[in-house]
Design a protein around this nucleic acid. Structure first.
Lengths: 136, 136
DNA sequence: TCAACTTACGAACACCGTAATGATA
DNA sequence: TATCATTACGGTGTTCGTAAGTTGA
């Protein structure tokens, strides 16, 4: 069972048609047919039934469709999460700190941070006044 | 991104080692390395970092691991569901019915059922007495 | 007879293992 | 130098598209 097989399966289920699924996926009809057949062989079940002119899901097909959609959603979320984390590779951070913290705490923290995310530039300004007071 | 890549990735994350993951999966080290590299290329992220002698997950790696485990669980559940539905291909059903129901309702129902699940044998006994009374 | 799916087959690509190379403690 | 990962490369299997065959209204 592969992602690709599930994607093809979902397209066929959505369109109730191998050929329309093929169009959507930019594949040919035989390629779609082969993927569905291979998926059916892999789990030893039948997912579609030809009823007259069009195609309907079997019970096993309906069941699998529910799982396939959940999996698909998870994959999408994972991709998005990766993209967002990717921001940490190219970000920029500006810091301001009162002198005590700046002198004793920050250097080691920043060192560890730069070590972990070398692509992020950090600008640091150390001042004698508390940050909140700088708004005045 | 493929299931196979995720499976390999999870094994590496579990063992903190490419070579032990390779053992578990009955693959060679280069094969594991290639799958991880391809997965990293696919989502444009890095999942492992070499720290001294062993390997640790990056932030992106930890994030992906959580998703991969969810996906893996879903796939397992789907497989089990398919297997259970598979029982409907080879099952056997014994029915008993009072005569009125047997005469008017059951024939069409059974016809539809046999049409849908031709592999299931059905034995039917029609009686004049309510089913519950047969326990006496 | 037309529309849709299946089968057949050759080309392109992906994945694996072996062997050689690189890095690190 | 010993261990672990990467790179290089040839063989095998998978997936694709094209073309021909089959089925059903």
């Amino acid at each position: 069972m592969t992602f690709h097989q599930l994607r093809v399966f979902m397209a066929v289920a959505r369109h109730h048609s191998y050929s329309r699924a093929a169009e959507e996926l930019h594949l040919t009809q035989p390629a779609v047919s082969a993927q569905v057949r291979e998926l059916e062989r892999a789990v030893d079940a039948t997912f579609f039934e030809r009823v007259g002119r069009n195609i309907v899901l079997t019970e096993a097909g309906k069941e699998l469709l529910a799982y396939a959609q959940k999996v698909s959603t998870l994959i999408d979320e994972a991709r998005i999460a990766m993209q967002e984390l990717d921001g940490l590779k190219r970000g920029r951070i500006a810091l301001a700190a009162v002198s005590t913290a700046g002198a004793y705490v920050l250097p080691s923290l920043l060192g560890a941070f730069r070590n972990r995310y070398p692509g992020i530039s950090i600008s640091l300004e150390v001042t004698n006044r508390a940050i909140v007071s700088q708004r005045g």
